[in-house]
Structure formats: structure tokens, C-alpha cells
Design a protein around this nucleic acid. Sequence first.
DNA 1: TATAGTCAGATAGTCGACAATCGACCCTTA
DNA 2: TAAGGGTCGATTGTCGACTATCTGACTATA
Lengths: 219, 219
Amino acid sequence: MAKLERISMKDRLATELRRKILAGVLPPHSRVVEQDLADEYGVSRAVVRETMLVLELQGLIISTPYKGSEVASISRTEVEGLLLPLRIHIEQFAIGEGLALFDADTFEDFGRVLADMERAIYNKDINAFNEADMRFHAIIVDGCPTDSARSIWDSIHPRIRMHFAMQTGRTGALSEFLEDHKRLVDVFRTGDVAASREAIAAHIIGTNEPHLGLLDESA
Amino acid sequence: MAKLERISMKDRLATELRRKILAGVLPPHSRVVEQDLADEYGVSRAVVRETMLVLELQGLIISTPYKGSEVASISRTEVEGLLLPLRIHIEQFAIGEGLALFDADTFEDFGRVLADMERAIYNKDINAFNEADMRFHAIIVDGCPTDSARSIWDSIHPRIRMHFAMQTGRTGALSEFLEDHKRLVDVFRTGDVAASREAIAAHIIGTNEPHLGLLDESA
DNA sequence: TATAGTCAGATAGTCGACAATCGACCCTTA
DNA sequence: TAAGGGTCGATTGTCGACTATCTGACTATA
């Protein structure tokens, strides 16, 4: 936050498009045309192409040579059997490596996210809530000194979010999710790695119900 | 194989650079300059930039805005705690989803790879052996109908390979690894999903020794 | 009518040039 | 001499134009 970094057009555009996809503005199978995006956002096609490449490698869009791209759709099998278990492992790893490094700044960050969640609930803004949720978990993953954790997490997490964005779900129980996050932070504060790892797994499985049978085949 | 696809310069260049990185021609921390690559391979910088973006998202290079890129280096913690467990999960998932779909063509593909491994051993060409090894596992991951399995595998596997490419290791016991792969194919032929999942995990752990303590903390 | 050939529009792939930024060197100046 | 500031080469960021390819429609022809 402090170092006001320079953000490339490519990254800004990627963030914007990801937001639109996750918010359902661009639903699965929407056609995405490079020139149209370039015109709409006032950038060159080169920028758009690099953006699309990022989103493709993150699994949010699918492109076919000389034909075009469309927004991907994610299957339930994929999410439950592959993406969620991977995500749990990554966040558990990040906690194992990073929990000891959580400091006052880290918990301030968590606090800000929790406040944003409350605000989102008050405003009934589910997209804002989801974005705060994403930032919450990003803090965890960024808290670990291993860079690839974030990099891999970035390529897995959006697909999961996209899947659940399609379901209407969770609108009613937002305050439940908020409480769940608060409890997580409390566990983190104890510094107990094993308990935190346990808690994050339960949290991810819990917040991504109504599915079951996850992870019980791990070994 | 049958559908002779058109391959973009970006993909060809990515394959070539990945090969060079994994073969150690471009060791970690090597500086990589866009214009130099463009000149060397006779393509425009736009192509090189898209290639670099792919390699960056796959964790093989690290780039800093307006400064440049360099070949990444992968830590042991990262490989053992994060990448290998993820890879095992992906390949197990792929087998769970795809084993029943393995057909004569699939086993022909396996056969070709095994033959290439033998040839590589005969020629004492460790890079060729490694490439065959990669193709072996790619067959598994591609055998599953869930596209993101391959996509995520692609972003994890090269980092692991890179880590072990740095260690001299495994030169002596190539024929052992070949036998290990043959045994794997035999298990696949039985169609026993549970046994195959078990075997692939043991194989991955085994071929990526001399490390231990993997995965015993999964839950 | 059915098939094959041709054309045109849309779109992605590639390119060369210009703009922005960085880092090191040099020059001033107290 | 040391601190500050400007200049310049190297490198990445961005752009607009040209080329290749795909798709569907139209046409000719047996």
C-alpha cells in the first residue's frame, strides 16, 4: 500500500475484466473480441492481447487461434475434485510458512477487510463482499515468503470464484460468512499453526458448500 | 497427434525457451532481454513479450516493470511443501477422471514415450529423457476431460522440473526410472483407479527423492 | 439439386516504430 | 571531496498498420 506502485495497462485491464467476469457482467460463453475491448478501454490491441493471455492462463477465458475468445465455464467436478483441494493445500502451506510472520500490519489489513465486509453487507453489495473475501485470502497467501504460492493461487482461485458466482447462493447468509472470517482471524492471532491450518480448511470447505465429500480421498 | 494443429510463434518460442531453461542453458538469474530474443529468433518483440508473459505465469521467469526479466530460481521448500503435493493431487485427479477413458491410442502414446526413454538412455541424453518423462505425465493429465487439469499442471510442473534440473541427480539410475514408468503403465492397464492413484503418487514421490516427509501432513 | 470453388468480412497473428522509464555516469558546486 | 542534479544509453510499455486465417455466403457447374 505504501509504495504506490506503477500499474501497467495490462494489469489494470486484467483486473477490470476479471471483475466483470466474476460479477456476471460477462457470463460464460460470452464472446470477447480484442478490437472491441481496445476501443472500449482506449488502449491498443497489444495491451488487450496480453491481458487476454493472462486471463486465459488463469482459466477465465478460452481462446482459439484465428477465431476468438470466450468466457470459460467451470464445471462442478472441476471445482470440487480439483480446484478446491488445491486451493486448500496452498492456503494451508501459506499459513505453515507465513503465520509466524504475521505482524500488527497484517492484522490491520485483516481488520480493514472485515470492515469492508461489514460495509458490503450493510449496502447489500454482494460483489463488494466477494471482493473483500478475495482480499482476505490474498493476505494469507501473500503472507508467506514463497512467491509461487500467490502465483499459483492466482491461477486457481478465480475459477472457483467464477463457479460460485454463477450460483445465486450465499446472498442470505453474508453475515454468517463475516463471522466465519472473524473467527479465522482470532485463530490466527493465537499463532497456533496446526489450529490455523485446520481452521482455514474448514472455512474453505464451509464457505463453499453446499457440496460435500471434499478431500476425504486425500491419501 | 492426428489433427496437425497450427502452432503460433508465441507457443513455439515458449517451448524453446522452456527447454533451454530446463536444460540449464539459461540458468537461474540469467538476464533475459526482449530485443535480444527477438533478434535471435527472428520474430518481433510483441511475440517475445507474449512468450515471456506465459513463462512468467508459469513461474519460470520473473520480470520487473521497465527493468527486465530473469530466469527464476525455485527453493526446496517450495517444491516439497507446495509444488509436489499439488502435482500429485492433479495427476491423481486426472487418473480418477480419465483412467476409464484410456484406450489403445493412449497406450500407444505411452509406448512411444517409453521407447523414447530407452533411446535417451542409450544415447545418455538426459535432456531427452526428461522431456520424455514430461510427455509421459502430460498424457495422463491430458487423458482427463477436465481442461483446467492440464492448464494448472502446466503452471506447476515446469517449476518442479527446473528445481531438479539444477541438481545433478538421477543420471546414474535412468533405467530405474524407465522401469518405474513401465510398471505404472502396467497398473493403468488393469483399469484399477485406486491402485493407479496410489501408484502415481508413489512414483512422483519416488522419482523426486532424495527428499522425504512429503504429504504426511495432508490433514 | 448437390457439390466444389471463390469471394468478402471479421478477427486474430505479427510487425516496426515511438514513448516512458530506469540506472549509471558525469558534471557542477559548496 | 561529497552531495545533488542533469544527461544518456538501455530496456520495457504502448501504439497503429499490415498480414494470415477462418467462416459463411454466393456462384458456377455437373
